[in-house]
Write a protein that binds this DNA or RNA. Structure first.
Lengths: 211, 211
DNA sequence: AGACGAGCGGAGACGCCGTCTCCGGTACTC
DNA sequence: GAGTACCGGAGACGGCGTCTCCGCTCGTCT
């Protein structure tokens, strides 16, 4: 009986997947397949033999991450307090995106050819919609809050995340509180996490890449 | 007496400047000098004879725009109501950035070699600082609001602007209200401009460029 | 131990893009 | 009409990421 693959080939494939996961999470989807290969300690050829191309690799690897987000939304619908459910979703969704830069990029960005990711992502809208609806039914949301506000807020906070990532990855929390407080009905303004020192913000802005 | 330049040369230079201003405002700083030249109806060579390079051209053209922002901040310090002064600054600063995409990109982005812009931009921080201080002195701001919050909010709202530009350039106003309300002391939640239809947001997200 | 071929590595072909140069030709000016 | 300031735009150049190709290595089975 012949094993389906030589053992070193299996090792290489695993190493490639691990490296890709790590690099995509840490540095985003812009890392080259060449870089992934080097990081995994194999040649570029090996990378291209294992995966149809970068797009396919990304698609394969990130379905799971997007699924985690969908699961999160579903889980938050089970939380007793409808406000905490919604709030928890937004908060933890951002935390996932801080931890995985690739996820953040793929979640809300031109989806060219990521077929599998697209399929999973399609479930996110309805799940979040349910969260918002439930909060409305419980009267804990300003009546004029709309489902469409959630992705927009994600994008807003995402911008803060990108800005402050290397100064303080959690700085976005301050603005998360700010925005969430604005959505809540009969809001007592919450305590805000402390601001970044001005010079840190200035530094981050200066380092910022132009588009 | 010889005029310093041939008349057609003057016309060409003017056309280039006008085209550059228009294209930078409309489509951002990514337009190529070749495009500017074509738009102006002249050859590329003419463009490069008139300006040291793209960086120099951008630097020349946008000082004035950044100066407008500084002027705005100074003017807002003259408004009687300190809250309206601060609020007006943020609101109109965003409006300027909606109207000029290049300004938005340059204002808070890696400043490589834009010497003149840098010089003017340096005045912005203090001017905004005064605005915030005045609002604090009047007690209309939450005490834990910091100067550093202003640029961060600019970046957040800028993300919304980029997202919704071609669906509804003013959609950011809803989120501006949301955020500003969060900064205000003893806030009565303000009325929010209406949300975008969900499908518009979804469309905008789908069209969004990956980074 | 030996031989077979699955699998490897990585130089480099390719395609794309934006910046900028160069010079034969045009047309403004006096 | 001479002289030259100025023009146009093809294309050189440099950079970058994707992916191919093929001579060679080394795992695997007998």
């Amino acid at each position: 009986m012949t094993s389906p693959q030589r053992r070193d080939a299996q090792r290489n494939r695993a190493a490639l997947l691990a490296s890709a996961r790590a690099l995509f999470a840490e540095r985003g989807l812009d890392v080259t397949l060449d870089e992934v290969a080097r990081h995994a300690g194999v040649g570029v050829g090996t990378a291209y033999r294992n995966f149809a191309g970068k797009t396919a690799l990304v698609d394969d690897l990130l379905v799971e991450r997007v699924q985690a987000l969908v699961d999160l939304a579903l889980a938050c619908a089970e939380v007793d307090d409808p406000w905490e459910g919604l709030r928890g979703y937004v908060e933890q969704a951002m935390a996932l995106q801080v931890a995985d830069r690739g996820l953040k990029q793929l979640l809300y960005a031109h989806a060219d050819a990521h077929v599998r990711v697209d399929a999973v992502r399609a479930q996110l809208g309805p799940a979040v919609g349910a969260l918002v609806q439930r909060a409305h039914d419980a009267g804990v949301l300003r009546p004029d809050v709309d489902v469409s506000d959630v992705p927009v807020i994600n994008v807003m906070l995402g911008a803060v995340v990108d800005l402050t990532r290397d100064v303080d990855p959690h700085a976005y929390r301050r603005y998360l509180e700010l925005v969430l407080a604005g959505l809540r009905a009969g809001a007592e303004p919450p305590e805000l996490p402390p601001p970044l020192p001005l010079e840190d913000v200035q530094g981050a802005l200066r380092r910022r890449h132009a588009r």
